[in-house]
Design a protein around this nucleic acid. Structure first.
Length: 404
DNA sequence: AGTCCACTGGAACGAGGGGATT
DNA sequence: AATCCCCTCGTTCCAGTGGACT
């Protein structure tokens, strides 16, 4: 047995508490930086709930990584605690609408997260009608709670307004009599409100808040607050300011900033260096970018990838021809032709043009590509052009090594 | 003011799959 | 076992759409 058997590291030389750098990690009070005003406004809006009265319905806007979900969850948790002290039985449910896009899935999530073991109500994962989920949810609320706060994150990903309608009408329609319901909608698209049904809009948007992006110094504080994820003295002084500056330039996304910090640490780990160096930050950002993209297309069907591949091939060709000067999009039909070729190579039948249009739209929804309508005028018809938003090389690499 | 055209996107439909209820 | 219910993925059909050009 050799003395320095370094196959496994017994003690992590870089991290002490890596959990602090997970996105899902909910910091304690005092660790939420630069959102004091937002938090107090939010608290104010839901305050009546503490006395068992109806909280205001709120809509929160803001780009990704501006602390919307974080603050909403934090407020809800505190609300439930405070209400308890007043002998009010409050509860909150968190729905990630990107995950639960249909009405049924969303009600199911609400009902099952509000449910406890003590009740005799059973909420199955699937198999029952939407109406049944509602019935059970109403019963749960009536029997168990005085106030319920429902957080709908990424509310713009919801297919329709049906659930909003139901939630806002539940009281009026006499479905829920013994429980007050408050809805907290979170969206990163300002224009979301325009697509909403007029009736839903008026009841749901009693209060609106906009979360601005973090600036470099706030990002700096956010990362500093979590820097005890690292062993003492491991982080070089310039790392956090550098990462903050980088992330601030890219829309002030705190999630990205923290990702960069984590990756920088991981780079130090794999390299076996004693400290996290400033130059790791740039590489970390690149890695974060690739990972984010991989996450986006993970789970997409083969044809969805072929379509993306077709666009990538076209983009790369164009770059090669003019050195990346031109950055115009490609017509759907043009992409479809390349897509058909790819299908032939892969030995599968191509999907219909109609279906491919939808697949492209899905990618546009994930901000992988951008669609713009054009009209060629007389005898040219109108058409859509698609432009890849990611670096084609990155896309190509990710597509190639996720063949599995 | 109307024409023209390639493309768009809504609608209706159905196969196949998973699960609950009675 | 029969009957409901919902979801995903895909199809075909077809009434618009937009704007340069007559």
């Amino acid at each position: 047995m050799p003395e320095s058997d370094d196959l496994f590291v017994r003690e992590d030389p870089i991290f002490t508490n890596k959990e602090l750098l997970e996105i899902s990690h909910l910091p304690d009070e005092g660790r939420i930086v630069g959102r004091d005003e937002e938090i107090s406004h939010l608290a104010n809006a839901v305050n009546p709930a503490i006395f068992g009265q109806s909280p205001s319905n709120v809509l929160i806007y803001g780009k990704t990584g501006t602390g919307k979900s974080l603050c909403a969850k934090y407020i809800s948790r505190r609300l439930v605690e405070t209400a308890e002290e007043e002998d009010i039985n409050a509860v909150f449910a968190y729905v990630d609408c990107a995950q639960d896009t249909t009405e049924t899935q969303a009600v199911q999530t609400i009902a099952s997260s509000v449910n406890t073991e003590e009740t005799d109500i059973y909420i199955p994962d699937k198999g029952i009608s939407t109406a049944t989920y509602y019935k059970r949810l109403w019963r749960l609320l009536n029997e168990e709670y005085d106030v319920a706060l429902i957080i709908l994150d990424e509310i713009d990903k919801l297919e329709d307004d049906a659930i909003l309608m139901q939630l806002s009408r539940a009281g009026e329609a006499g479905k829920v009599t013994d429980c007050k319901i408050g809805v907290m909608g979170i969206s990163n698209k300002i224009k979301y409100k325009d697509r909403m049904d007029e009736r839903v809009k008026s009841s749901l948007c009693e209060r609106e808040f906009v979360f601005p992006p973090y600036n470099a110094s706030q990002l700096n504080k956010i990362m500093t607050a979590r820097s005890d994820a690292f062993r003492k003295g491991v982080l070089q002084d310039a790392v956090i300011p550098r990462a903050a500056a980088l992330a601030a330039r890219e829309h002030g996304d705190a999630r990205k900033a923290i990702d960069i910090l984590r990756y920088a640490g991981e780079i130090a780990q794999t390299r076996g260096t004693e400290t996290v160096r400033e130059e790791f930050v740039v590489q970390a950002r690149e890695r974060a970018e690739i990972d984010r993209f991989r996450e986006l297309i993970r789970g997409s069907t083969p044809h969805s990838r072929y379509v993306l591949q077709a666009l990538t091939v076209l983009s790369l060709d164009q770059q090669r021809e003019d050195g990346g000067v031109e950055n115009s999009g490609f017509r759907t039909t043009r992409i479809y032709d390349v897509y058909e070729q790819i299908c032939r190579q892969e030995g599968t039948d191509a999907l219909s043009l109609r279906r491919v249009r939808d697949l492209l739209k899905e990618h546009a929804f994930l901000d992988i590509l951008e669609q713009t309508r054009h009209s060629g005028g007389s005898a040219e018809g109108s058409y859509t052009e698609h432009t890849l938003l990611e670096d084609p090389e990155v896309v190509k690499n990710v597509l190639e090594d996720t063949v599995e």
